[in-house]
Amino acid sequence: NITNLCPFDEVFNATRFASVYAWNRKRISNCVADYSVLYNFAPFFAFKCYGVSPTKLNDLCFTNVYADSFVIRGNEVSQIAPGQTGNIADYNYKLPDDFTGCVIAWNSNKLDSKVGGNYNYLYRLFRKSNLKPFERDISTEIYQAGNKPCNGVAGFNCYFPLRSYGFRPTYGVGHQPYRVVVLSFELLHAPATVCGPKKST
């Protein structure tokens, strides 16, 4: 009989979020998941679920829940969905086509923008091939755009693969920082350890 609540607040209220190319993952297990707390949290810009209804989450049990978190621009949030393409979905964070879970995003301009620009948040701009679902690539190898080998030196046709967002408070909404948490639900042939409040007695 599990009684402790799942530590969703640790994920959602973290002081610093990860850059999207180096997205953070927390495994959540052996706890009671009260999703209504999240669902009623006012400032969400997006709360979209795939393969599961957000209002039914509290009735369900899962083997594991993974909480992935990172920061992207407002106009990139739409790429955090199954079957998407674009710089983020291709080179930074890719969801599987059969994704079961929820994508939760909110504007973090007050936290993550600075006058003069916040350059701490990076994304991958160049990559030889697209990421596989949930693949994480933190390499900083110089990207070779031409035929000539770069030998690890940036220059003509040789690019550092990461780019900084440089968030400023005055940017338009599409270019403002958004914090994103992706909850993915794993249902294995194993005992369920993460259940909603109704199922955990």
Rank of each mutant, 00 (worst) to 15 (best):
R25V: 02
C31H: 06
F167H: 00
Y66N: 10
K148W: 10
I28H: 05
L187N: 15
Y165G: 02
F126M: 10
N151W: 10
C195R: 12
I142D: 00
N30C: 07
N151T: 10
N30F: 07
F70H: 01
Y119I: 06
Y171C: 00
E186R: 09
R73H: 05
I80S: 01
K114L: 10
L183V: 07
Q79S: 05
G155N: 06
C6I: 05
Y143T: 03
A105R: 06
K199F: 14
A18Y: 08
P43H: 10
G174H: 06
V32F: 10
R168W: 05
K128Y: 10
P169N: 06
T85D: 07
N109Q: 06
E135V: 07
G51T: 05
A154W: 06
Y50F: 10
Q84G: 12
V20Y: 02
C6Q: 05
Y159D: 00
D112R: 03
K94S: 07
C102V: 05
S164R: 07
K94Q: 05
R127Y: 03
S164I: 02
T55A: 14
A22Y: 09
Y21D: 01
G101T: 01
R136W: 06
F12V: 08
F8K: 04
P197L: 15
A33M: 13
C150Q: 00
R179Y: 00
K56D: 13
T3N: 11
T193M: 11
G155W: 05
F134I: 05
P149M: 10
G155H: 06
P82E: 01
F47H: 09
S78A: 14
V115Q: 12
P96Q: 05
R163D: 07
Q176M: 06
R136D: 02
C61G: 08
F167N: 00
G86S: 03
S164G: 15
F185V: 07
A81I: 05
A89Y: 03
C158K: 03
N107S: 07
N107K: 06
A105E: 01
V65D: 00
A18Q: 09
L188M: 12
P43N: 10
G174S: 10
F70K: 01
D137L: 03
C49G: 01
T55Q: 13
R25W: 02
N118V: 04
Y143E: 02
Y178E: 01
T63Y: 10
V173R: 11
A154H: 06
T100L: 14
N75Y: 15
N151A: 12
G196Q: 11
W23Q: 01
G74W: 02
V52F: 12
P161Q: 04
R124Q: 00
A46Q: 15
F160I: 12
R179A: 00
V153Q: 15
R168K: 04
D137F: 04
L57H: 06
E76L: 04
G116H: 10
N1V: 10
V173S: 11
P82C: 01
R168Y: 03
R168H: 05
G155A: 08
V181Q: 01
K26L: 09
K56N: 13
L111R: 13
K48C: 05
P82Y: 01
L183S: 00
S200Y: 14
S36P: 07
V37C: 11
N87D: 06
K199M: 14
W106C: 05
V153S: 15
I80F: 01
E10M: 08
Y123R: 04
F47Y: 09
N40V: 07
G172E: 00
L38K: 04
C31P: 06
K110C: 06
A145H: 01
S78W: 08
N151V: 10
F160E: 15
D68A: 03
F134A: 09
F99H: 03
T201G: 14
V20L: 02
G174I: 04
A67P: 00
G146C: 03
V194D: 11
V180C: 08
T193N: 13
Q144L: 04
S78D: 12
A89C: 06
N64D: 11
L125Y: 06
A18P: 15
A18E: 10
L38H: 04
V32I: 14
R25T: 05
F185A: 04
K110P: 07
A67W: 07
F41C: 08
F8H: 04
F12G: 04
H175V: 00
K199T: 12
G172R: 01
L187W: 14
A105L: 05
G51F: 05
P149R: 10
R73L: 04
G74L: 02
S78P: 13
V52N: 05
L131G: 01
I72K: 01
Y91T: 04
F70Y: 03
T201Y: 15
F12P: 03
L187I: 14
V37K: 15
P7G: 10
K198S: 14
S129C: 09
R179H: 03
D34V: 05
D34K: 08
D9I: 14
F160S: 13
R179D: 00
I80V: 09
Q176H: 04
N147D: 07
Y66G: 02
A89K: 02
E135L: 05
A42I: 10
S36Y: 06
S36N: 14
D97H: 13
N118T: 06
F45L: 13
R127F: 01
V37A: 14
N147W: 06
N1H: 11
N118A: 07
N58A: 12
Y21S: 06
T15K: 13
Y93S: 01
S78M: 09
L131S: 02
A192P: 14
R127W: 02
A18G: 10
A190Y: 12
C150S: 01
P169E: 04
V65C: 10
R27D: 10
P161G: 04
F17N: 02
Q176A: 04
N120C: 06
V182N: 00
F167M: 00
S184D: 06
K132N: 11
H175Q: 04
C61A: 11
C102F: 04
N109A: 07
Y121W: 05
S108P: 00
G51H: 11
S78C: 07
A18R: 07
A145L: 04
V71P: 00
V173T: 14
S184L: 08
C49T: 03
C49P: 00
E186N: 14
N130R: 15
Y123Q: 10
D98T: 12
T100V: 14
P43I: 05
S108I: 01
G172I: 00
E141T: 13
N24W: 04
Y91I: 06
V32P: 05
L38N: 03
N30S: 09
L95A: 02
D98F: 08
N147L: 06
N157M: 02
K198G: 15
C158Q: 02
R163W: 15
V71Y: 01
K132S: 11
G51E: 05
G146E: 02
I80M: 05
